[in-house]
């Protein structure tokens, strides 16, 4: 018997094209950047340039900050990482390990729940 899944869709702005899926990893404080799992979907309030070295290990980005013209857009485009920005309260909506899909074309973030 396979597990049932349901989804919740959150809409933001597509900041960097591409699609990615993986487990959420939420940055809430300075210490959290020291343990980013490879292949994760990074969930941040804002992506400052000093976090750029972490980007090659992440699959996608979910950013709370709403504007298209911001650090995350610049960096994600440079490294070809799908990114959705303007997902308000993303750090409250998602927990570490949540299954997320990021659509960097449309800005949609899909959370999959295994029931």
């Amino acid at each position: 018997m396979s597990a049932e899944t349901s989804t919740t869709v959150y809409s933001g702005l597509g900041a960097s094209p591409g699609r990615a899926s993986g487990k959420a990893y939420v940055i809430r404080n300075a210490e959290d950047i020291m343990a980013v799992p490879a292949g994760s979907i990074l969930v941040v309030r804002i992506l400052h340039p000093h976090l750029a070295p972490l980007l090659p290990r992440v699959a996608g980005l979910v950013v709370e900050e709403g504007a298209i013209l911001q650090h995350a857009t610049t960096l994600a485009r440079e490294f070809g990482i799908p990114a959705a920005v303007g997902i308000r309260d993303a750090r409250s909506l998602f927990q570490d390990g949540d299954l997320l899909e990021v659509d960097g074309y449309t800005g949609k973030v899909i959370e999959r729940h295994i029931d």
């Binding site: 340039p49 750029a52 070295p53 090659p56 960096l75």
Partner: peptide, 12 residues
């Protein structure tokens, strides 16, 4: 007109 090489990319 995003920067061709941003400060973050240089740091990376």
């Amino acid at each position: 007109p995003f920067p061709e090489t941003s400060a973050g990319a240089e740091l990376m």
